[in-house]
Design a binder for these strands. Structure first.
Lengths: 186, 186
DNA sequence: CCTTGCCTATCTACTAATAGGTAGTATATT
DNA sequence: AATATACTACCTATTAGTAGATAGGCAAGG
């Protein structure tokens, strides 16, 4: 892995663990064992670094989306949840939650990059739910887009809240969402 | 309102708007029209300020809890939601979401104060749901504590996500949660 | 095959601004 | 007089970012 990717991976980790405003180029440089000027060579500004991290996540979601495109809706939704489970295992929140809480304190250029990614995730989950309902494997009464918002905010929120209440709550929430979706109601 | 309360209110506002790591004593001082040293007089450290903000919210929840103690469960839950609606109106996220995303970058003393407050909110919502179910006004199949986690993470999460997707999504989520709770299922 | 020159990546050294925090002093209230 | 509140003046560390030097790799031209 080249230095640029090492910087990117570490920046991502720090954004999800501590938040965008809680780490500096010096933190990155010290951990990697290079100088801050070298980071500026790869990412001229901290904004550039944040945008690269967003693109990294966008690509990650895109890859899972493609990889599961022909699978059944349940497998798709589980693949979606697995992204969050991986974050939980590392003590991280999700990049959407981390950046949205800091949104009004960061460069608008970051928001401009984040917006289409968040909307894309919402569309993806909405489509999974629609497909699941059509095929009779998911049952819910709300509008698919609203149900997607409910599920996404559950995952985003529990990553944060379970830092306080404990990791088992993350799994409890994940399992309950799936159970309720699969349960046929009157 | 005395200076201490002015500082506290502004610090609260900035934590919910920009995040704990995104404002300085200088920002507070400049806005209020005093010197940073004066803030240090009232709140020796930034940690003290954060803890005071947490206590402010704890007192707020406590007050609503008492005020609605004898009301019906639906009124209680609506009062709970109104706290988040007020934040949304100001473009703010909730203090739990804001501080949890920054949790691993801040003084552990802040976490120590935050933990019982978050657990208290969870217990409160759990009790509202239990009472609602017992009285036949709420219908849900999950364990009450889990359902409380789902609802809390919905509110916390949508405050953040709707910064990107738009304010109407906040209301849509709020209304949908209530509608689903009130709907009798097979 | 070797030298010239470009490209990439890193370094040293620096800057101006901002961070949180302290010591000691002045002023206003009670 | 005592107390609460705010001030001036300062400190040390850190912040993001820049300028310019250096070193190695690699390709073209003589």
């Amino acid at each position: 892995m080249n230095t640029k990717d090492v910087i990117l991976k570490l920046a991502d980790q720090l954004i999800l663990e501590k938040g965008f405003n809680a780490f500096s180029f010096y933190d990155l440089a010290e951990t990697i064992g290079i100088k801050t000027a070298s980071i500026h060579y790869h990412f001229p500004t901290k904004t550039d670094l944040a945008i690269a991290v967003i693109h990294l996540h966008a690509a990650g979601f895109e890859q899972v989306k493609k990889q599961y495109a022909t699978k059944d809706p349940l497998a798709k939704l589980e693949a979606f949840f697995n992204i969050y489970s991986r974050n939980k295992a590392e003590g991280q929140v999700c990049f959407v939650g981390s950046l949205c809480t800091d949104l009004y304190s960061i460069d608008p250029a970051i928001e401009a990059e984040l917006t289409p990614v968040v909307k894309g995730i919402l569309i993806w989950v909405t489509e999974i739910l629609k497909e699941g309902k059509r095929k009779g494997v998911f049952h819910f009464s709300a509008a698919p887009r609203t149900k997607a918002l409910l599920i996404i905010t559950n995952m985003l929120g529990i990553l944060q809240v379970s830092r306080i209440t404990g990791k088992p709550d993350f799994n409890e929430v994940r399992n309950t969402i799936l159970k309720e979706l699969k349960t046929k109601k009157g």
